[in-house]
């Protein structure tokens, strides 16, 4: 009992906390893939969201504006991704990877310009308070916990219980047929990717404004790619995505907890990546992506 109280509860608390940005990015990724556009650009959307969040907070001193800027930053990258993939028919993998490279390099450059330091930004106004209260695990979360719950619920309802969601999924399954029945394929694809960008941007801002209070170079550290794995593993369904994200959040939490316990830090930090790799190896064999991913209405 004592062990549970001292070890398990804090770890579970930070499991949820670490999983939150992954859930934002994952639900966004579900929208993108369901609309037929691969979500490999998630890393860049997280990165840009994190950076713009800090920049917004830095210039206005307001965390709320920071989160808004984060959403805008993620959406901006998503817009580029959508224009490239939908309008100019770029290979979606290459576009995603290219944008990820661009975001990493551009944020470093911008840090040098704004803060004259390419390692980290100055500290800015960020989310300070936890919910508190008597419920364990919940009490260490911030208000973003509820935002996350709302996003998951709304995401699921939108994808599976609305006319828009049905249309988006049809475009993702068969753009040609969707076009034939008169759906606006391009507009729907754009909408899916932009929603992805907005949510991932918020997730990025969560990384920099909630978990931290600054932007650090390369701070997403592959979380965007982990989110891609989560999206696949969660079968492109927001509810399943939460479960998968919690698994990775747990690895992150254990990793943080184990640091300073005598095990070499590098081996511990490897854990989330190793788990992603193993899960990718054993968990995804029979998962089929929507049939129309990467296809165009004229194919």
């Amino acid at each position: 009992m004592q062990i549970i109280l001292t070890y398990l509860i804090p770890i579970l608390g930070s499991t949820v906390y670490m999983a939150t940005p992954l859930i934002f990015a994952g639900v966004g990724g579900a929208f993108s893939v369901r609309g037929g556009v691969m979500a490999l650009g998630l890393e860049s959307m997280l990165m840009c969201g994190a950076f713009c969040g800090v920049a917004g907070s830095f210039y206005t001193g307001s965390t709320a504006v920071g989160f808004l800027c984060g959403i805008l930053g993620g959406t901006l990258i998503a817009l580029l991704h959508a224009i490239l993939c939908v309008r100019y028919r770029v290979n979606q993998v290459i576009s995603g990877v290219g944008l990820n490279l661009l975001a990493t390099a551009a944020t470093t450059l911008m840090m040098q310009v704004i803060w004259n330091n390419k390692g980290s930004s100055e500290m800015v106004a960020s989310v300070e308070s936890m919910i508190g209260g008597p419920i364990p695990i919940l009490n260490v979360q911030s208000f973003n916990f509820f935002v996350m719950l709302a996003v998951v619920a709304l995401g699921w309802v939108t994808l599976f219980r609305t006319r828009y969601g049905l249309r988006l999924r049809m475009v993702g399954e068969n753009p040609k047929a969707a076009s034939a029945v008169g759906l606006r394929v391009h507009a729907l694809k754009y909408s899916g990717v932009l929603i992805c960008g907005a949510l991932a941007g918020y997730g990025g801002a969560f990384l920099s404004l909630d978990q931290l209070n600054m932007f650090v170079r390369g701070m997403t550290a592959g979380r965007g790619y982990i989110a891609v794995a989560i999206v696949i593993l969660g079968r492109y369904n927001p509810v399943n995505i939460v479960a998968c994200a919690l698994l990775f959040g747990f690895c992150d939490a254990v990793q943080i907890y184990l640091q300073g316990q005598g095990v070499p830090a590098q081996l511990i930090q490897m854990l989330p990546y190793l788990v992603t790799l193993i899960v990718l190896a054993v968990g995804v064999k029979r998962i089929q992506p929507p049939a129309g991913v990467g296809k165009h209405e004229t194919d």
Binding site: G222, I226, V228, A229, I232, T276, L280, A281, V284
Partner: peptide, 12 residues
Amino acid sequence: FGSNEVVAGVML
């Protein structure tokens, strides 16, 4: 195992 080679590459 049918893994996505991009994600696997980044993890590795």
